[in-house]
Every structure is written in structure tokens, then in C-alpha cells.
Write a protein that binds this DNA or RNA. Structure first.
Length: 584
RNA sequence: GGGCCCGUAGCUCAGUGGACAGAGUGCUUGGUUCCGGACCAAGAUGUCGCGGGUUCAAAUCCCGUCGGGUCCGCCA
């Protein structure tokens, strides 16, 4: 209902300003502080005071006088508080919210008939996913979820870099070395942990090996790259053997989050179908194209990008960026919008890509990036697959689940609720809480800020954490388990207690939160919302008995309110990719 | 050195033109005959990195500066 009342408020202010013959370019609509009783407010009187020649409070009063709340469904009253015009919700606002939130799908916005492809993670298939990379699937999945909730037709893509130099090195190393050459056992019994050893071995050899042998290896690697460029099927098969195996392992790891994809798009596909060659030809025709030191480049200096973008190597092979251009034109053909979630280290490359796409005649407004900053280890240490430094995501998830299991077992004794948990329940809760805590810790922060990864902090199960908000959901379920059915068509008017009203107000805001999070591609605002929601719910829970409420009408209304709260919390958590436990 | 991002309570973070700058954590104290105590209540905490500027109004916008991150490969 928040979105509806927001529209009504905008219309009301606009009409009032029109009637007063004042400009309507900025309505100054904002959400008032907590202690103000309004759902929305306007600070427009500040701006118009000079024009009108009256003090802001007077202007605010004039605007308020001009608005008749009876003409609006969800605006109950218009008041002023100094220079602010406040809009109070009507009884219909509460009724409509309570009713709308009975739907399990509450918070889903109407279908927009617009497709969006969200590309995220796209980590090179070189080895195990480490925590430094984990921010990408967690944020990316949440961005996709939020867009999905907001009514877009969402596809999740993982772009597989299967044609670059790194994969040529990996393929060479995989074919050249034997188990006996490797000096360590796999850290885990899964394929990418096995194969990454070859990749590390190969890189170490290229760095420190005897000059002659390194030269021979380079020739071999060069041969693989040329083969791919020429569209040679055999070469492709050789590389694929490595890529597909490593990727399948990484996929298993990501599925634990879970982060699932609709499609794994291989960059080699844009070499085989000729679109990269075609793109190179078109790039050469651009005024910005220059041929320097035997390589074709794009001079983007006049667009504020100092670094020239090489798109064809002197040996005639294409680069990652070249293929990515073809990839993006393919996205534009198939989707209305394209969102890419990528690390800040790819920022320059993304800017170059966008500029080049624009020069090629694409509408780059349909392309948006979500940039996230690094996850560092304490002491400022980075994480690298090639060097083998960093915490594996698998280890983090294992540790999180283990700690959560300990926690559940520890709490068993002092547990008030007498619903004997089975071994299966304990395992489920450990999983939901442990993984949820990791995701929530990462998704709840602004992606642009760097994170220092610390075990204790990431796995703190109290306070502003996943378990804290998950607990609210479990409490809702606990209450609803005790009732035969949720009453239909209840009257929100009997919810007189302030705490129940406050809860209904917070529930009402949820679709608006989704709407804004989708518009700004900022899922962390949903996490902030779940915290506020939990606080409001807990206050309600403390003050308002549900099952033993004073009379049937109140009990019915409160049961419906709890059902509404449950749907809201379940869906908010779902957009964050955090499980909503029915008990914990 | 240049571009971009970040700097808010001891710590981890919300807030990015508008009502007195907010949570959690940590510290102190209290609360389960009552729907789930992974909860709640009460108490102290700030040069919003620093200096200018714009504005009726700045943590928020602009300029400068300091500190941290990141990029500046014919890697991805």
C-alpha cells in the first residue's frame, strides 16, 4: 500500500501547488523520522517560501488546507508540523495492507513485461571459489532476486571465460604435468581442488622454470590460443576438458549458497559464431581505431578514458574485452536490460566496454553495473587462486554450519518450546542459520565498501545477523502452528495497540522497499528493512498476546497480522537469499 | 603520479540535501508461573577524517587536503 499512498501524496501535493499557482518540479516527498506519526511528508514549503514571500510554516499550512483527504483512499489526514506537511494514513490503508499481506506472494510487484539479464560471479574456471569472490554470487543473486520480485523477467547468467590465456595456460599445465609432479594433495575431494594444483604448478613453472623449457611451454600455450581463435574444434575440446571439470566443481560450491544460474555462457561461443571477427571489423572502421605497435586499439581519450583499449593482439588473436563486446551485443539483442555485478578491479575494463559499445551504435543506457569492493583478510592480505592464498568458500560454509550446529545443540537444554527437534531438524537449522549468517553478513553491507573478513564477526549469531531476523520468522511460525486457520476478512481497526499498528505500518512499506531496491540495484536496503522489521515485530510480540488475546476479534486480527508478518519476513529473506526457518 | 571507490560512536555498520546523526556489539543493571530468552527493557558514547565553499537547510553537493583500497597488461 506504500506505493499507492506515495502516488496519492504526490498527486495531492501537485494539485495543491497547481491550485496555489506554485511550481511543481520538486515535491519534496520524504519519509518522516520515527517519532512523527505520518507515513510520508513533504518539505516543499522550504523551497517555496522565498517565492511566496511567506515563512515556510505558513506555506505548509496553505498547502495542507488545499488538500482534502476525503478525495484520497489511503490518505487519512493532512497536518503540518512547522514547515513540514505530514500525511497520515487512513483506516483503509491499514485494512488494505492487512488484506494484501495475507497473500504468500506479498511484496511481489506487478509484471513489468521487461526482461533483464543479470550476469554475476563469472569467475574464471581456474580453481576453488574463495571468500574474496563470494561477494559476487551473494550480491548478484540478491540483485537478481530483487529484480524478480519487482516484476522483471530475470535471467541469471554466468559468463565463462573459457578462451583466454589463463585457460590456455591451464590446459597446457593439465596436459603436461602428472600427479607425480605435484607437491600437494587436493585440499578437498572435489574436482576443482584436484585440478587447481596443475594450474598452480604451471604458473610456478612459467615463472621459475628453465628458460628453454618455459619458451617451449609458451609456444604450446600460444598454439592453444591460436587454435581457439581459428575455431579449431580439437583445441576447443582440449580446453573444454579442463573448463568443464573445474566449472562443475565451482558450480557445486556455489550451489551451497545457493547461487544458481539459468545459463552458463561461454565466451568461445562468440568466437565460433563469427561475431567476434565481425566485431573486430566494425571496430577497425571507427574513427577512434588506431593501429599501433602491430596491434589494433581504440583511443578513448576524448571520452575521458586515458588507457587505450587493445582489441586485436599483434598475433591476430582477440582479447577478453573484444569477446565481451560481442557478448554484450548478444545480450542487447536478447534482453531489454543487462546488469553486470563485478569487482571494482574490473571498473576500467567496464568503462571501456561501455564506451566501445556506445561507439558501435548500441544504446548503453540498458547496461548497468553493480560494483563491489574487495573482501580482504586481516592484515590487508588479498586472496588469490593462482597463489593459493585466501579462504575457500567451502571452508567458510563448513565452519559456519558447524558453529551453527554447536549453537543449536547448546541451546537445546534451555529451550522453552517443547517441540522435540529431530536430528534432521538440527541439521536443517544448522544449515539455514550457518549459511544464512554468511550471506546476510555480506549482502547487508553496501557493496562499494571494502570488507575485512573475520571469522568471529561473520559468524556472530546475535544482534544484526541472519539468526536475529530468522528468529522472527520462526516465532511467527510458532504462533501460527497453534491456530487451525488464519481468519479471513478481518478488521484492521481492532488493532488498537500502538505496537500492532506500528507492525502493520512496517509491513505496508515492504513493496516500496522492493521497488526502491530494484530501481537502485541495492539489495542491502532490504537487509536494513529486515532489521527494522524484526525490532518492530519483537516489540509487538512483547506487548501483544496473540493466542490469548482479550477477545475473539482482537485475536483474529492479531493472527492475521502475524500471518502477514510471516509472509513479509519470508519474502524479504528470500530476496536476500537467506532461508526462513519454520523453527530454530 | 593519474582515474575511480571508501573514511560516521572503542569495534562492525545504516543513513547520501530536510525534523534532535541511528542500530548492533562491547560495558553496567534488570526481565522467562505468560504465543519460542538466538528475545526484550534501562543507562553512557560522536571535531560525521580535516579545511574551505554552495544552500533557508550539508554526514549527504562542490573545491582542496590527509588516510586506506583499487585500477592504470597485446591478463581476465
Amino acid at each position: 500500500m506504500f506505493i499507492a499512498v506515495r502516488e496519492e501524496v504526490a498527486a495531492a501535493i501537485e494539485d495543491a501547488l497547481d491550485a496555489l499557482d506554485l511550481p511543481t518540479d520538486d515535491l519534496g516527498i520524504e519519509e518522516p523520522p520515527e517519532d512523527v506519526d505520518a507515513v510520508l511528508a513533504s518539505s516543499v514549503a522550504f523551497r517555496l517560501a522565498g517565492e511566496v514571500g511567506a515563512p515556510p510554516p505558513k506555506v505548509a499550512a496553505d498547502i495542507a488546507d488545499e488538500i482534502d483527504p476525503d478525495t484520497y483512499e489511503y490518505v487519512g489526514a493532512v497536518t503540518t508540523q512547522g514547515p513540514y506537511v505530514n500525511f497520515l494514513p487512513s483506516e483503509a490503508y491499514f485494512d488494505a495492507t492487512l488484506s494484501a499481506a495475507q497473500d504468500e506472494e506479498y511484496g511481489h510487484l506487478p509484471d513489468r513485461d521487461e526482461s533483464v539479464v543479470v550476469e554475476h560471479t563469472s569467475a574464471n574456471p581456474t580453481g576453488p571459489v574463495h571468500v574474496g569472490r563470494a561477494r559476487n554470487p551473494i550480491v548478484g543473486d540478491a540483485v537478481a532476486n530483487v529484480l524478480d520480485f519487482a516484476g522483471y523477467d530475470v535471467e541469471r547468467h554466468y559468463y565463462v571465460n573459457d578462451a583466454g590465456r589463463q585457460m590456455a595456460v591451464f590446459t597446457w599445465a593439465y596436459e603436461t604435468f602428472d600427479e607425480a609432479d605435484l607437491d600437494s594433495e587436493p585440499e578437498r575431494d572435489r574436482i576443482e581442488y584436484d585440478l587447481v594444483r596443475y594450474y598452480r604448478k604451471g604458473n610456478a613453472f612459467l615463472e621459475d622454470g628453465p628458460d628453454e623449457e618455459v619458451e617451449a611451454a609458451e609456444a604450446e600455450i600460444q598454439g592453444i590460443m591460436q587454435g581457439l581463435e581459428a575455431g579449431d574444434r580439437d583445441t576447443f575440446e582440449r580446453v573444454s576438458e579442463v573448463v568443464d571439470q573445474v566449472l562443475s566443481g565451482m558450480q557445486e560450491c556455489l550451489a551451497r549458497l545457493p547461487a544458481e544460474f539459468d545459463e552458463f555462457v561461454k565466451e568461445s561461443q562468440f568466437m565460433f559464431d563469427g561475431s567476434t571477427d565481425d566485431l573486430v571489423d566494425r571496430l577497425k572502421e571507427l574513427d577512434e581505431a588506431v593501429y599501433e605497435e602491430d596491434a589494433w586499439q581504440l583511443d578513448l581519450g576524448e571520452y575521458g578514458i586515458d588507457k587505450q583499449m587493445v582489441f586485436l593482439r599483434s598475433d591476430g588473436t582477440s582479447l577478453y574485452t573484444t569477446r565481451d563486446l560481442a557478448h554484450h551485443e548478444w545480450k542487447f539483442e536478447n534482453y531489454d536490460r543487462a546488469v553486470t555485478v563485478l569487482g571494482e578491479d574490473h571498473k576500467l575494463q567496464a568503462d571501456q566496454l561501455q564506451q566501445a559499445l556506445s561507439l558501435l551504435g548500441n544504446d548503453v543506457d540498458q547496461l548497468e553495473n553493480v560494483i563491489f569492493s574487495w573482501v580482504n583478510l586481516p592484515g590487508g592480505l588479498g586472496m588469490s587462486t593462482r597463489a593459493g592464498t585466501g579462504v575457500d568458500l567451502d571452508d567458510l560454509l563448513d565452519e559456519a554450519t558447524d558453529r551453527a550446529r554447536d549453537e543449536v545443540e547448546e541451546r537445546m537444554e534451555e529451550r522453552i518450546r517443547d517441540d522435540d527437534l529431530t536430528e534432521e531438524d538440527i541439521e536443517r537449522i544448522a544449515h539455514q542459520v550457518g549459511i544464512g549468517a554468511v550471506r546476510y553478513d555480506i549482502v547487508s553491507k553496501q557493496p562499494t565498501k571494502a570488507i575485512t573478513f573475520e571469522w568471529d564477526q561473520a559468524l556472530d549469531f546475535e544482534a544484526q545477523s541472519a539468526p536475529y531476523v530468522q528468529y522472527v520468522h520462526a516465532r511467527c511460525c510458532g504462533i501460527l502452528d497453534e491456530v487451525d486457520s488464519v481468519p479471513e476478512a478481518v478488521d484492521a481497526g481492532v488493532l488498537e495497540r500502538e505496537e500492532s499498528r506500528d507492525l502493520l505500518r512496517v509491513i505496508a512499506r515492504f513493496p516500496g522497499v522492493i521497488d526502491e531496491a530494484a530501481a537502485d540495484l541495492e539489495p542491502h536496503t532490504v537487509a536494513t528493512y529486515t532489521r527494522e522489521f524484526a525490532e518492530t515485530f519483537n516489540a509487538f510480540y512483547r506487548e501483544c498476546q496473540v493466542l490469548s488475546a482479550e477477545d475473539k476479534a482482537v485475536r483474529d486480527a492479531r493472527v492475521a497480522l502475524v500471518a502477514a508478518a510471516r509472509h513479509t519476513m519470508a519474502n524479504a529473506l528470500s530476496t536476500l537469499g537467506v532461508a526462513a526457518p519454520r523453527s530454530m
